[in-house]
Computed example of a mutant assay.
Amino acid sequence: MKLLTNREELLARIRAQMHEKRFNHTLGVAQSARNLAVRYGADPDKAELAGLLHDYCKCWPVEKMFEILVRHDMPTELLEGEKELWHAFAGAIVIQTDLGVTDTDILQAVRYHTTGRAGMSLLEKVVCVADYIEPNRIFPGVDEIRALAEKNLDQALALALGGTIQFLIEKQKTVYPLTLIAYNDLVSRKGREGGF
Rank of each mutant, 00 (worst) to 15 (best):
D103R: 04
L27Q: 14
R34C: 12
T97F: 00
G195I: 09
Y112W: 08
D55Y: 00
Y40H: 10
K2G: 11
Y183P: 12
L27G: 07
L3N: 04
R15V: 12
V38N: 10
W60R: 00
D43S: 09
A158M: 14
H113R: 07
H72R: 06
D103N: 10
Q96D: 04
E150Q: 13
I169C: 12
I138K: 13
L122N: 04
L27W: 09
W60N: 00
V127I: 14
E20P: 13
E8L: 14
R137D: 03
L52I: 02
A42Q: 09
N24R: 14
A47Y: 06
H113S: 11
G119C: 05
V129I: 15
Q166G: 13
F139A: 11
H54D: 02
E193A: 04
G100K: 04
E124D: 09
G41R: 10
G91F: 04
G28V: 07
Y56N: 00
G28T: 06
L178P: 04
A149V: 08
A30R: 08
Q96F: 00
I145N: 01
R71P: 00
K46Y: 05
V101Y: 01
D131N: 13
F89M: 02
L85P: 03
L79P: 02
R189N: 10
R71H: 02
A109S: 11
H25C: 05
V126L: 09
G28Y: 05
T5D: 12
T26Q: 09
E170T: 13
K64T: 10
L11P: 03
L157R: 09
Y112S: 06
Q155R: 15
R13V: 10
L52K: 04
C128F: 14
N152E: 15
P177I: 03
G195C: 11
I145D: 07
P140S: 02
Q96G: 13
Q96M: 00
L148F: 06
K125M: 11
L123C: 13
L153G: 12
G119W: 10
L148G: 02
A156N: 11
Y132R: 12
D98M: 03
L148D: 10
H25W: 11
M1N: 12
R192K: 14
N35W: 05
L122A: 13
Q17D: 12
V129A: 05
K83N: 06
D55V: 07
L10Y: 06
L69E: 03
L27M: 13
E150I: 05
R71G: 07
N184R: 12
C57K: 03
